[in-house]
Design a binder for these strands. Structure first.
Length: 210
DNA sequence: GTCATGATGGTCT
DNA sequence: GACCATCATGACG
């Protein structure tokens, strides 16, 4: 039996869940205190039929095992010496996930700046950057449910994007079958979206509805 | 301000 | 021994 929290992450297309996650508040209770921010950018990975997914063609290893877990679980993995954070979606044995790529710092931003050793939008405008900013530096939470966890997402506290942009995903092989698939979503104009140009930033509203 | 390149470290074949 | 869902830096405009 799934909790109401878990049901948010299943029972509808992953793309729809990803768009719905924009504006939700991610929080982490770590040794240096509480950190967190609003999701401004994410990408959908559609499992066994998605050539950019870690589970493409049913590939299943210890490394990516967490993708096969319950909806709302944590998939924390390492790539090129950096950690990235996915939220597992869809039911058990259906290995789909949503990669968080950008956060707008909201809880103790000064601590997040300290974790990164750099200030400005570079604190959280990338998947490995936001994980480091939160204060996570191991795979300890990989495979755990988010509900009641020190790392979780607050579905009650959220902002509403004025406009959502859809685009191809970042860092995936464009020549691959689904390399150019429009499965990246972000809040238009928010400065913490990775790779956004300065002239495209909306510094007044940061892309949120009033 | 925009683009190209090297460093990075664990996992898989 | 190669592959990467990345990042920081340094060159050029």
């Amino acid at each position: 039996m799934l909790s109401a929290f878990q049901q948010f992450f299943t029972g509808r297309p992953t793309i729809e869940i990803a768009r719905d996650l924009l504006g939700k508040l991610v929080t982490y209770d770590g040794p240096d205190g509480r950190t967190g921010g609003y999701i401004v950018e994410c990408e959908a990975y559609l499992g066994e039929n998605d050539s950019a997914s870690h589970a493409y063609n049913g590939r299943r290893t210890g490394y990516s095992e967490s993708l096969y877990g319950q909806p709302g679980n944590i998939y924390l993995y390492q790539i090129r010496g950096h950690y990235c954070f996915d939220i597992v979606v869809q039911d058990t044995e259906e290995p789909q996930g949503i990669l968080l790529r950008g956060l707008e710092p909201a809880i103790n931003p000064d601590v997040m700046v300290h974790h990164r050793g750099i200030s400005g939008v570079n604190v959280t405008n990338g998947p490995a950057k936001l994980v480091q900013a939160l204060g996570i530096h191991s795979r300890q939470l990989d495979g755990q449910p988010m509900e009641g966890n020190q790392l979780t997402v607050d579905l009650e506290k959220f902002k509403i994007p004025r406009e959502i942009i859809t685009a191809p995903r970042v860092g995936v092989n464009l020549a691959g079958k689904d390399g150019a698939a429009p499965q990246r979503f972000y809040v238009a104009g928010n400065p913490y979206v990775s790779g956004i140009r300065k002239r495209d930033m909306d510094l007044k509203t940061q892309g949120w509805r009033a």
